[in-house]
Design a protein around this nucleic acid. Structure first.
Lengths: 78, 78
DNA sequence: ATGTGACTTTCAGTCCGTG
DNA sequence: ACACGGACTGAAAGTCACA
């Protein structure tokens, strides 16, 4: 799994957990709207400083955004 | 503490733990020697793909390179 | 074996828009 | 609220010579 994909996944997950839209997140992090969209679609390899500012808005550590998701336990059993 | 400094610190620490010179690390990661030097001196905010390739050579996760160092327990008592 | 300045090229990141 | 495109700018990516 590519590092961009990991970031994209975590970004999307944490963002939704906070109930934020891409626009809201972009605004609060002082980053362009369309760039967030690009990151979640793995268009760019973000710089660590934007990872850091995104992490701050999302209330997590920068390193958390680069952690590969858990192997087994993703799906919620209905 | 700035994210660049964290990366610089961890990079240096892990590199030395592996007994690698900047040149060796650079060579193995397919990156220029002087660029490693720049990163360890906080000249740039590296991209996550660079962080990832460095992490692979150092045998750690990309997220480990962005983890802020432990508060207390760094200095070894002589 | 590393720091640093000067340099060129690539791409991250912005800003405008559309569907 | 999001995907996606074009055009642009500045910083990162990459190279070299010298201390």
């Amino acid at each position: 799994m590519e590092i961009r994909e990991i970031l994209a996944h975590n970004l999307k997950t944490y963002r939704r957990a906070q109930g934020l839209s891409q626009e809201e997140l972009a605004h609060r992090a002082g980053i362009d709207r369309t760039y967030i969209s690009s990151l979640e679609r793995c268009v760019y390899a973000a710089g660590i400083d934007v990872v850091d500012s995104l992490a701050k808005v999302l209330g997590v550590e920068a390193s958390d955004l680069l952690k590969r998701p858990e192997r087994g336990a993703s799906r919620r059993r209905s």
